[in-house]
Structures are given as structure tokens and as C-alpha cells.
Amino acid sequence: MPASFNHTIIAARDRGESATFLRELLELADAPSWGLFTNLLMPDGVLLQFAEPPVELIQPQHYAFLVDEELFDRAYARLVAAGREHWADPQRTRPGETNTEHGGRGVYFLDPAGHYLELTTKPYV
């Protein structure tokens, strides 16, 4: 069996808030949660586990999600409707825009814990 990505733990100030934000934005399924984790299941079977370490230990990370054009439109509309800051570039020099890099569309924004999220409609490679 070749290696595949199975799960990751995402640090959050409030694991429920962060999980709900991503679940609603990306239309993800809840997964059984246990112990310290609030879980979401990606369509490809990858498990996202949200946990609450001490706030001073949360280091901002970058998480990029590949979505189709229709989900991009719906998710982007939700970001705009919520008044959430977003940028076309990771340097945050193009606020309120999306990009057309890599032959698709993309957008960057922060989640409730301060992680830098990206939606893109085309893989980089």
C-alpha cells in the first residue's frame, strides 16, 4: 500500500468554533469526536482534528484546500457575506480580491484561531 495522508491536528482557541467555521465554509461532514478532539472528515477520507492547546502554544499554520468551481463560489460568497477579510495573495497585498494563479482561482483568509487558509480550484502541480 502506498503512503497517503490520513489526519492532522489543528490547534484552536475554541475547537468547536474552528471546526464549525470550516465545516460550514467547505460543507464538510462531521465525524465522531472523542477526548480532546472535535473532528471533521474530508471527502477523500482525511480527518481534521481540532484541539485546544494552551493559547501561547498555537503557532499559525497554512492549510490549503482544493475545491471545485461551484464550492469556491459558495464558500467565497459566505466569506464576503460574513465580512471576513480575504486576500488574493499570501503576502496580503491584494485585499478583497481573488486570484487566477495556476490556471484556477484562489483566495486566502484567516480562520478563528489565526491559521492562514487558502481555497484554490486548481492544484499547483
Results as ranks from 00 to 15, higher is better:
Asp30Ser: 13
Arg23Ala: 13
Glu52His: 01
Ile58His: 08
Pro32Gly: 07
Trp34Val: 05
Arg23Ser: 05
Gln59Asn: 14
Pro90Thr: 01
Leu79Ile: 14
Leu71Pro: 07
Leu36Tyr: 05
Ala64Ile: 10
Ile58Glu: 15
Asp44Trp: 00
Pro60Thr: 13
Gly45Met: 00
Gln49Phe: 00
Asp44Thr: 05
Phe21Arg: 02
Gly16Asp: 15
Asp14Ile: 06
Leu47Arg: 09
Thr38Gly: 00
Asp14Ala: 12
Gly45Cys: 06
Gly35Cys: 01
Ser33Met: 05
Pro32Glu: 13
Leu26Gly: 07
Phe21Ser: 07
Asn99Val: 12
Leu48His: 01
His102Val: 11
Ala29Thr: 05
Phe37Trp: 08
Gly35Met: 08
Asp89Ser: 09
Arg94Val: 11
Val107Asn: 08
Gln49Cys: 14
Leu79Lys: 08
Trp34Cys: 04
Leu71Thr: 11
Tyr76Lys: 02
Leu57Ile: 01
Asp89Tyr: 03
Arg105Thr: 12
Tyr63Val: 13
Ala19Ile: 11
Phe21Leu: 02
Ala82His: 01
Thr100Met: 08
Gly45Arg: 02
Asp44Tyr: 00
Arg84Trp: 09
Pro53Gln: 05
Gly106Arg: 08
Ala75Val: 12
His62Phe: 07
Arg94Gly: 03
Asp73Met: 07
Arg105Ile: 11
Ala19Tyr: 03
Pro53Asn: 11
Glu69His: 03
Leu25Arg: 06
Glu17Gln: 15
Asp73Asn: 11
Leu66Lys: 06
Ala51Cys: 13
Gly35Trp: 02
Ala29Arg: 07
Phe21Asp: 03
Phe72Asp: 14
Glu69Gln: 08
Val46Asp: 13
Ala81Tyr: 02
Leu71Glu: 12
Thr100Ser: 14
Val46Thr: 15
Asp68Thr: 08
Leu47Met: 15
His102Asp: 11
Val107Tyr: 05
Trp87Phe: 15
Gly103Tyr: 08
Gln49Thr: 09
Ala19Thr: 06
Leu41Val: 09
Met42Thr: 06
Tyr76Thr: 09
Asn39Gln: 06
Pro95Trp: 05
Thr20Asn: 13
Tyr108Arg: 01
Glu85Met: 02
Phe109Leu: 01
Ala51Ser: 14
Asp89Thr: 04
Gly16Pro: 05
Ala64Leu: 15
